[in-house]
């Protein structure tokens, strides 16, 4: 019920966006790995005002049994929004939108995972949107991918994701809430950075063919940057800090067993 006001313009005369960003600039992003003790792997993301937590359980026994896959693990993604994450209270029951987003997130993550290592089991990815301010499905993928890595699920690569959109005729990266609502289109996408293969692609609004290609190229560039942020977030938790490393101070808000950090020791 917080009053929503349509802004006068989305791109200022100086070419800056409503929150002062340049067209290809992401919102401030904070990624944290290992934020939940009960989960096998977890991560949180703050992207602008968007705040999302992802937790991974498994591989473990799959219930109900009829979902079992004989040659690989079943990747079950549940994307849910907290009732208080949006201006009007969201009804507590899962919506059709949440079900669809759960599915596309699963499809975005699957190509990166070696699920065939765990036949007949399930890997559960639970995502809660605590505060939604645009770009939640992409932010959710960024966090879920980190949580899967934290859980030790073998993977080809992390999966970064970003939404590219159009407002006042200009292509913009990482749409905020107003840009999403009052802009002319939105292209959420996720990639595997090693190969630039696209694992999530959706679109709404109006785009010419060249615009879409340009938008996707912008998206790939931003995803590469996000991929670096994701790797940094993992290193903060998994790479052992030597006693003589003065400059960089990593905050340590979890009890991680640094003894197992050798796996990441190729840095």
């Amino acid at each position: 019920m917080s009053p929503e006001v349509k802004p006068d313009f989305l791109i200022s005369p100086e070419g800056l966006r409503i929150d002062g960003r340049r067209p290809d600039e992401l919102r401030p992003i904070e990624l944290k790995v290992g934020v939940l003790k009960q989960a096998n792997g977890s991560a949180s993301i703050r992207q602008g005002k968007t705040y999302i937590i992802a937790g991974v359980y498994g591989p473990r026994e799959l219930h109900p049994r009829h979902l079992t896959l004989n040659d690989r693990a079943y990747l079950r993604v549940v994307y849910r929004m907290a009732t208080f994450s949006v201006p009007d209270r969201k009804r507590p029951a899962p919506s059709r939108r949440e079900r669809e987003i759960s599915m596309v997130i699963a499809n975005a993550l699957k190509p990166a995972l070696f699920l065939e290592e765990f036949p007949k089991s399930v890997v559960d990815v639970h995502i809660i949107v605590i505060q939604a301010d645009g770009g939640t499905r992409c932010a959710a993928i960024n966090a879920a991918s980190l949580a899967l890595a934290d859980a030790g699920i073998p993977m080809r690569s992390l999966v970064p994701a970003v939404a590219v959109g159009k407002a006042d005729g200009k292509l913009l990266v990482d749409l905020g809430d107003e840009e999403d609502k009052y802009g002319q289109g939105d292209v959420p996408m996720a990639i595997m950075p090693q190969t630039d293969e696209i694992t999530l692609l959706q679109q709404d609004g109006f785009f010419k063919r060249e615009e879409l290609v340009e938008a996707m190229q912008m998206g790939i560039n931003s995803c590469k940057y996000l991929h670096e942020l994701q790797k940094d977030a993992l290193k903060r938790v998994y790479v052992q800090k030597t006693s003589d490393s003065d400059g960089e101070e990593f905050e340590d808000d979890l009890e991680t067993d640094l003894g197992d950090a050798e796996i990441m020791g190729d840095e």
Binding site: M1, S2, L36, K37, Q38, K49, Y51, A82, T83, F84, S85, V86, P87, D88, R89, I130, Q131, A132, D133
Partner: peptide, 28 residues
């Protein structure tokens, strides 16, 4: 106030290794 932009009130509470987040919505 962990959900300042969307919820009218909120809090994240940790009790040892238990944690919960609560949010308040005020509607008409």
């Amino acid at each position: 106030n962990v959900v300042p932009a969307k919820a009218e009130g909120s809090a994240l509470v940790r009790l040892g290794d238990t944690s919960v987040v609560a949010g308040v919505k005020v509607l008409v």
